[in-house]
Amino acid sequence: MGAPDIATTTMPAPLDIELTGISKSFSSSAGDLSVVRDIDLQVRGGSTTALLGPSGCGKSTLLRIVAGLEEADHGSVLLGDKPPHARRSKGEIAVAFQDDALLPWRTLKANVALGRQLVRMPAAPRRVADLIDRVGLSGFEARRPAELSGGMRQRAAIARCLATDPRVLLLDEPFGAVDALTRRRLNVELPPVWGDGVTTVLLVTHSVTEAVLLADKIVVLSARPARITDVINVTLPRPRREDMLQTPAFAETVRTVEEALGAGGGGSSSA
């Protein structure tokens, strides 16, 4: 904290995420719906945290609150020492939405470059091309979203997120539509790309394996309204590799998480 200027320009310090007493309910003509209740959560800067919970429990809503896209009824969100809206305009946050949010009239390349454009960063064609390659989409740069498969679109969205080198990365089921093999490969290959250990990642997933493979901490949420029922630390060494899947430690963690999910009352499936 001593010399923030130098620290942020050369090697920005990782940002902690701190949620205190977050509650949110939606009111509509069909009635009121309490979605998130009393969430307290600390995420250490540079770590990866996975949110697991039954469908419709409020994970996406929580992520949107962290991104400042949704105003919580109660409680506060801090990224480092600032609220989300103070972070967004510098490209310090990136969100990969559950729906890919690609603009249909832009080519894949233009969609990936969009993030940087929006935060007014200089265009970085090489970085964009590199990211497209990393998510396995080279050769499709000039295609439009309608010409891509669902999984390809998700990967493009992730590339867009990474293009701004965000300090907080919010991923909402980023690989939901990607086949198991590619998904596993991305699970291993992407963390170094987004700066594992520097970028704070909050990830929503329905796949326990994915959660264990990516996260340092797994937060298990109850059915709606979402409350934290369990927090499991993953102690596997980093960097994670594909062969770790076969280790007993991995299998052990997976079992613990699955039990926690079952106990939390959510009947979630695991991939």
Binding site: G68, F97, V119, L170
Partner: peptide, 10 residues
């Protein structure tokens, strides 16, 4: 979600 995406970049 498109509006959200733009907003998420501040």
């Amino acid at each position: 979600v498109w509006v959200d995406m733009v907003q998420s970049y501040g």
